[in-house]
Design a binder for these strands. Structure first.
Length: 592
RNA sequence: GGCCCCAUAGUUCAAUGGAUAGAAUAGGAGUUUCCUAAACUCUAGAUCCAGGUUCGAUUCCUGGUGGGGCUACCA
């Protein structure tokens, strides 16, 4: 379990106290600290209820005895008070002042290198449609987790899977061939992924028309939906693709090229990148051999000519891995791709799949299979499962046209940032380019923070109005605080940090306590693959800072020692905020 | 049908089994001759229901209600 410096100082002292006072040995893991509630005096609280059996005394007596021991033996503990079973410890100012000094000198959000290498997969788009809001949660989440793991000392490999083959892209290709009249992104001015998406919709329209036509002619609807000529033509195209037909391949390459170019533009604007792209067209053949070997080893079994895995002992079902005609299913290629990745990147300790929770079952099965196949790395597989994004109007459904397009959404948040920014008219000194850059930064911060402040596991509601909010618990609020500090530091001119030897005032202490919590939040975020931990603690920190800023003079403080201390604290907060936001994939401006 | 996830102020989100359940937003009241008011202060407002475990349950267990997802020799 991770402990901050204070806790790792106090824990052994408490263990010792139990030994000395009660002749009892307690498991250090069981000693839990919590921040003292603001209505009581103290900084850190130890709850002694769990140890009453060990101490053989009442809660007050136990806490009192422990408190006395700590006060005597731990220099950081200045005094304490006991309320019921709660031992509230007052930590000496010297500790906090020393922490402020350290935070000014080093990056408190950089953990020592662990030597372990982690692969994070965080996008797996199909190439027949542009990216939407759901992809954005996926992308921002995965990117942030990559950065958090990096800050936590791991080496990270960021990858995406591009589903570039299959019936979906053939549908777009066929519709373009029939109705496109040679339209290209250049000729139409339409972004490549949007153009291909347009023909996917065209296909769907044509298919519906054909089905209606067939039904009107007396055909059964279900049958018509399976046998509409345009659908058969698309299936035929897929077969030609698999057979390597040069004409089909050329068209496929051309249209996928448009899509990649479009995706790249969106990724660039969103500020994310990948170290390696996996294309389904290259990986879909993988896995078959591995399944056959598994069959030989008796891990799988054959039934009606198909290869199955039996996971009933694990509480799951049986699942086909190879059809009776020998062809693969999704699971097959995922098995093969995982194996390939561990071959390509020897020594990977973890492979994290950032994929929506509708695939929970799929990954449970995948991981069990790889374990059954005996791969030692199978324990390092992890599904970072995130919840769906709902709209106020309900679920996003591409069929009903209720999806929120990623590019449009980014445009909107940036526009909103512009509207507010122009209104506040604080930016007169900015050039047009500088303004553009700033509004882009603010808009994206609003969007990213909105999506990242929520526990990834949970389904969330995307309220467009709230997502472009720039006030309150938002990314722009954090950016604003950062810019504010930079402004103070600029105005302060040059100064030299020096230790403070007068008591801290309440507002300074609150800021320091929140700053002190930030590394723990990073650790939690890394352990749980949950950016919301660091997002929320960063918010707590800037809130405390703003309160201090409001009530205490900083650059204008007349007492020099206090002045440089507050400047130092301000800079330490700004540095930590910048790094914390970096962990979320969010940039911070020097002015706003 | 089977399996999985979720339920907290009007709304959107927090809360390692611990003290009087925190924020934001919307509502009400204030703060600017002073370092950026995208800020700050005050105010009102919530654990789906019923059992159980525990010194102590929003948290764990069982049942119920409501919502969502998965459950093809489709991709």
């Amino acid at each position: 379990m991770y402990q901050d410096p204070l806790q790792s100082r106090l824990t052994p002292a408490l263990v010792e106290a139990f030994q000395v006072l009660f002749e009892a040995s307690v498991d250090p893991e069981r000693i839990a600290f919590q921040a003292t509630r603001p209505e009581f005096e103290g900084d850190l609280t130890v709850n002694v209820f769990p140890f009453l059996k060990v101490s053989g005394r009442g809660p007050e007596q136990t806490a009192q005895a422990l408190g006395e021991h700590l006060q005597e033996h731990v220099s950081e503990v200045e005094r304490f008070n006991v309320i019921k079973g709660f031992l509230n410890l007052v930590i000496a100012d010297a500790y906090w002042i020393e922490y402020a000094r350290q935070a000014l000198e080093r990056d408190i959000l950089a953990f020592p290198a662990t030597g372990s290498k982690v692969m994070v997969e965080y996008a797996s788009p199909n190439t027949n449609k542009p990216l939407h809001l759901g992809h954005l949660r996926n992308i921002f989440l995965g990117y942030s987790v990559s950065r958090i793991l990096e800050a936590a000392g791991h080496e990270v490999v960021k990858v995406q899977v591009i589903n570039d083959r299959g019936i979906h892209i053939c549908k777009s290709m066929l519709a373009w061939q029939r109705f496109g009249k040679g339209e290209t992104p250049e000729s139409s001015g339409i972004k490549g992924d949007k153009l291909v998406g347009k023909y996917y919709v065209e296909f769907d329209k044509a298919l519906k028309a054909e089905v209606e036509d067939l039904v009107a002619k007396g055909s059964d609807r279900e049958k018509a939906e399976k046998e509409a000529p345009i659908l058969l033509a698309a299936q035929d195209m897929l077969r030609k693709w698999e057979a390597g037909d040069p004409e089909v391949k050329a068209l496929w390459e051309k249209m996928n090229g448009w899509v990649y170019f479009g995706f790249e533009a969106t990724y660039r604007r969103a500020g994310v990148d990948f170290d390696r792209n996996y294309f389904e067209s290259e990986t879909y053949v993988l896995g078959k051999q591995d399944v056959l070997e598994g069959l030989k080893k008796g891990v799988f079994y054959e039934k009606d000519g198909a290869v199955w895995v039996d996971n009933t002992a694990e509480g799951l079902d049986e699942k086909v891995l190879l059809r009776s005609d020998g062809t693969s299913v999704y699971m097959t290629q995922d098995i093969g791709t995982a194996i390939k990745r561990f071959e390509e990147y020897p020594g990977l300790s973890q492979l994290i799949y950032t994929v929506g929770n509708e695939q929970d079952y799929h990954f449970k099965v995948l991981f069990i299979i790889l374990k059954k196949l005996g791969f030692p790395w199978a324990d390092g597989l992890h599904h970072l499962s995130y919840g769906m994004v709902d709209l106020p109007s309900g679920k996003m459904k591409s069929r009903e046209g209720t999806v929120v397009d990623a590019d449009d959404l980014i445009d909107e948040v940036v526009q909103e940032a512009r509207r507010t920014g122009e209104q506040l008219s604080k930016l007169d000194a900015f050039s047009t380019d500088e303004k553009d850059e700033l509004f882009e930064m603010i808009g994206l911060a609003a969007l990213k923070y909105y999506l990242l402040k929520v526990d990834p596991k949970k389904r969330m509601l995307f309220d467009p109005a709230a997502s472009i909010d720039l006030q309150g618990h938002t990314g722009p609020f954090i950016q604003y605080t950062y810019a504010r500090i930079q402004s103070v530091l600029r105005k302060a001119g040059s100064w030299t940090a020096q230790p403070l030897n007068v008591p801290l005032v309440a507002e300074e202490l609150l800021v320091l306590k929140q700053l002190h919590q930030l590394p723990s939040a990073l650790h939690e975020a890394a352990a749980k693959l949950d950016p919301s931990a660091i997002a929320n603690q960063t918010y707590e920190l800037v809130k405390a800072y703003n309160t201090m800023y409001q009530v205490l003079p900083i650059a204008k403080e007349e007492d020099t020692a206090r002045r440089v201390f507050r400047l130092g604290l301000s800079k330490a907060v700004a540095d930590a905020v910048r790094k914390a936001m970096w962990c979320l994939g969010i940039e911070v401006p020097e002015r706003m």
